[in-house]
Amino acid sequence: MSDAAIPKPTSGTQTFAGKTGGRIGRRFRELSEAGELGLIAYITAGDPSLDATGKIVLAAAEAGADVIELGVPFSDPVADGPTIQRASERAVRGGTTLAGVIELVRSLRMHTQVPLVLFSYFNPILQMGIEKFAETASAAGADGVLATDLTPEEADEYRTALHARDLDTIFLVAPTSTDTRLALIAECSTGFLYLISRTGVTGERASLPEDLPALARRVRRFTKLPLAVGFGISSPEHVSVLGGIADAAVVGSALVAEIEKAATVNAAAGAVADRIRALKRAAREGISKRSA
């Protein structure tokens, strides 16, 4: 861990890191103008193979996903529930590496301009080297990075390196985050803020937590960045009410479960696309940001 010079924190009101405006910031501006809730799709890369993930991502983008998070599989995913744990295990067993996922980004960029976020635990990034990671991920066409087990306190070098390559640094905020922490996280984030809807691991749940609207309002006091809500969001019913609360919904385990169930890659891509269309319809027809 180097003691690199501490950068001056970027302003919390900045919505994109890039000089000309990143894909993430642009997409959120379009959504905002349309008064529409965004849909962020999480997919574990390499489950069942990187080729398959490529096809599934293109299908998801085609079906209307506004941002796609590519999960970098890790041997010890402490923040994930059983569905993503199993996907991660399959992908690691299949030999998926962070370098391989970045290669996938490069090949996806020949076909789609959908914003792509790398969603990883910190150790694979650290082993590649933070500088090299920032350089290759940016060159491949990634737009942002979220490291699940990295908070701003430990992220000086990471933020410097990523911002220098115009990559957004997306951090998590949680129901347990104190106001002091919300202020720090907002200050260190670009692109959007990812709000964990409840204490717990990833995975589908029957209903949204009752205190979610109050939590989202509390977070908004500290940032003008778009707010994406994840953990336990799976159904059109969930999404249809989120428009009044957030700027985007993150759906992960429900999609990963479709991939797990599907017999073929085409079936997986089809099932994910169907899910996303249904969710996107709910996002458009539910409580919109404008009416909220």
Partner: peptide, 23 residues
């Protein structure tokens, strides 16, 4: 950040790398 970093370190080792919910 720099102040926080001082704590919980043994030379370069240690620190606090957890999901935000646990911070």
């Amino acid at each position: 950040a720099n102040v926080v970093r001082e704590r919980g370190r043994y030379g370069p080792y240690g620190g606090r790398y957890v999901p935000e919910t646990l911070m």
